[in-house]
Amino acid sequence: MAKVKSLTDLKKIKENFQMKMDLIAKCDAPDSMFQVKIAMATCGIASGAKEVMNYFIEECSKRGILALVTQTGCMGYCYAEPTIEVTLPGEEPIVFGDVDLKRANEIIEKYIKNGELVDGIIPVNYNTID
């Protein structure tokens, strides 16, 4: 990776990456990317987030779903770990709590494949700054 030499360089990286993220969020072709973020802080991992993340990576490729599975930090919902956030193309992200492998399967089959919501949604109860 070339070094970032100036503020302009930094802005370029920012824009490039935002474009990448936008592509994921904006494309609405039926076979486009799904994004799954797994809360992987110590608390999440302790309650099984790693297995859930592996499950998503393996199962999505097995079932032919093009999904971008990434880790992220603590979402703050300690009472409902492991928590994951799923973004369908063109939709608002939805957070699911208490995701074990059984529920992960349900989320893939129902929500990711058909857009049907499943039980255990966590309403986002905060505003974040832009």
Partner: peptide
């Protein structure tokens, strides 16, 4: 309102580009 936690649970902590974005 999340200020200090603005990126927690939003970006991949091991990817500097997400932070830059």
């Amino acid at each position: 309102i999340r200020v200090a936690l603005r990126n927690c649970g939003f970006i991949d902590p091991e990817n500097i580009e997400e932070y830059i974005a």
